[in-house]
Design a binder for these strands. Structure first.
Length: 311
DNA sequence: TTCCAGGTACCCC
DNA sequence: GGGGTACATGGA
């Protein structure tokens, strides 16, 4: 059972690390109980992130975030074991990264109101949490994602990290690399990028890295603080960033939860289950704004996951 | 082999 | 502003 408390600045119940039970199980290994609305597969395989991988042997997930490598497993009693993680690291970093402070129960309840499609989708994707990801990594990852598929996207990103990311050392026998900074990527050649299987996206990535590294990294860092429209205008000015990539960046990297990215899968569910014309992107965006509002990003993620596995 | 993938830039009207 | 098309490449 979760304990919840009201915060003064946000009209929603919030949870803090103190509401969870954290016990040490060994060196850099902890068990956390009391986490609600969290499912590893639904969260890490719902298309929002590309550097988390399921370990086939035990169903746990290993991920690289910033300069940290971690393995998380979900236990039958509802607790989670974080390997390669201290209690302080959990409280200071992973708690926020995994968005554990948010009350998803309220969000789901609101979205489900008078919407049978959402009821199905939130039931199917129960336990999805929107990760609070890095802006730069999100931007480049979703430029890479365009007109590609998830296995290939993951492969390209790993290749990019391997040729230009900082080595982070070994974990369980494998070497891991950080996601490369704008400066590191801007130092690469088109041929380097081509070797990662990026195809025509190599040009976009190099251009964007140079732009951000040279003079506007300060601009990029403002994107969480300015209104969505202003952030969208700036981010779409980068080469290779159109409305879809921009919306993914805004949602997953800049934490603008009213963003509603529409890709082929979202078009599919919006036409088949909400009755829109296939090219009526404007109508779909307006529907999201009107019906899902500040929770549009959450709605999108439930719908996307449902569509990908069922349509 | 062919089709398709978390689209965008560019061109035309 | 809406509608076509080329773009690189690997996964299924």
């Amino acid at each position: 059972m979760l304990f919840k408390k009201k915060t003064s600045n946000e009209n929603i119940t919030a949870i803090t690390p103190e509401h969870l039970t954290i016990t040490e199980e060994g060196e850099r290994r902890i068990r956390v109980s009391g986490i609600d609305h969290f499912d590893l597969r639904h969260t890490f395989d719902c298309g929002q992130c590309f550097r988390w991988n399921r370990v086939p042997a035990d169903g746990s997930y290993t991920g690289v975030v910033d300069d940290k490598i971690i393995n998380i497993s979900q236990k039958f009693d509802g607790s989670f074991v974080f390997d390669n993680c201290t209690p302080d690291e959990f409280r200071d970093f992973w708690f926020d990264y995994l968005d554990l402070g948010r009350d998803y129960g309220t969000i789901i309840e609101t979205l489900n109101r008078d919407d049978d499609v959402m009821k199905t989708a939130t039931g199917y994707g129960s336990g999805i949490r929107l990760l609070r990801q890095d802006m730069w990594e999100t931007l480049i990852s979703f430029i890479i994602s365009q007109n590609s598929n998830i296995p290939r996207i993951k492969k390209s990103i790993e290749a990019l990290c391997k040729i230009s990311g900082r080595p982070l050392g070994k974990y369980k026998g494998d070497e891991y690399y950080a996601f490369p900074s704008p400066e590191r990527i801007s130092g690469l050649t088109i041929e380097d990028l081509d070797s990662c299987g990026l195809g025509y996206r190599s040009r976009y990535i190099l251009d964007t890295a140079k732009t951000v590294a040279e003079d506007v990294s300060i601009e990029l860092n403002r994107m969480r603080d300015v209104p969505l429209k202003e952030a969208e205008e700036y981010i779409t000015s980068l080469n290779g960033v159109g409305p879809k990539v921009a919306n993914c960046f805004l949602l997953f990297g800049a934490w603008h939860y009213e963003a509603f990215p529409i890709d082929v899968w979202m078009k599919r569910i919006m036409t088949e289950l909400y009755g829109f014309r296939e090219n009526d992107l404007k109508g779909m965006q307006k529907y999201a704004a009107d019906h899902f509002g500040k929770y549009s990003g959450f709605a999108q993620q439930y719908l996307f996951f449902y569509a990908r596995e069922n349509l």
